Computed example of a mutant assay.
Amino acid sequence: MRVISLLIASLFCASSIASSLPDDPHLYVQGLAKIQVQPDRATIRVAISEKNKQLITAKNNVDGVMAKAIKLAKRFDIKSDDIHAEQLNVYRQTRYNRNTNEEVFEGFKVTRSLTLTLKKIQSYPELLQELVDAGITEFNNTEFSVSNHDELTNKLKLKAIKDAKSAAKELAAEFEVQIDKLYSVSFSPLSVPTVPYLRQASAMTMMDSESGNYKEAYNTGAITIDAQVYAVYLIK
């Protein structure tokens, strides 16, 4: 992994030197690598809201549900650092009475948001159900991810580099020219109107699959992680 990090760091240094295409004859190519993985963690964003004309009553009800939810999260082995309970939000709600032309006070709406990072993904369906039972009223969104995302990305960058090299050789052979040397490389597209050459088969040949620890009855599908590299080669 140290070798991968050093190689990627050196490529970033090279990309900072040259950010445009050269005047000399050249090839501009894109390398691409993808992988599909099953998620092994879920970031769950939920909330509780309560409406009552008595502010203290609404606050106490919301705090009570939030306390249950936090206790529940810990029972699912969610660490304190992965539990983020937001502060109270209080809104004074009114409605317009057309008959009296006055604003009528309807009550206070009190809300609190909670974000949980579940690292035992097989418990996700059960956790959702128990959050509902505890009184959580809003499920904003869930983001599925993999814990070794950085490691996978670094490996994909190396595959993308190999793909870019193959693309350059393929393009040079088709035009019957010889590659001289590497001019620049970057992990983001150059700010130029030219579109880089991308091998159409590369996305498929680089597509791998890794199985994850996820309950089949509640499968959200695979996550696609990809990496691109953009290289400019001088030709002769």
Rank of each mutant, 00 (worst) to 15 (best):
V232W: 04
V177P: 08
A217N: 12
G64S: 05
S166N: 13
A222R: 09
S113D: 14
N89T: 15
E138F: 10
E151S: 12
D40N: 11
Q87I: 10
E130H: 12
N219L: 03
V110A: 04
K53I: 09
Q228T: 11
F187G: 00
F144L: 03
A227E: 09
V46I: 15
G31N: 06
D40R: 02
V29N: 01
A67V: 13
M66N: 05
E103S: 15
E106G: 04
R75Q: 12
L6W: 02
K79I: 11
R45A: 07
K215C: 05
A167M: 03
L158S: 09
I121W: 00
L198I: 14
F12W: 07
A201Q: 12
E176K: 15
N213G: 02
M206T: 15
M206G: 15
V29Q: 02
L27E: 11
E143K: 15
S184C: 07
V90K: 01
Y233H: 06
R98P: 07
F108S: 05
A172C: 07
S80E: 14
M1F: 04
I17N: 03
A201T: 15
L116R: 00
D81A: 03
Y197E: 03
E170P: 08
S211Q: 12
E126T: 15
S184I: 05
L7N: 10
A85R: 15
K181G: 02
V195R: 12
D133M: 07
A134K: 04
S20E: 10
L72H: 06
K165W: 12
E126N: 11
A222F: 03
I121S: 09
S145F: 00
I8N: 01
S113L: 06
D63K: 09
S20H: 13
N148E: 04
L27H: 10
L128V: 13
E130Y: 11
S123V: 01
A42V: 11
Y214R: 08
T43N: 03
S202L: 00
E50N: 08
T194N: 03
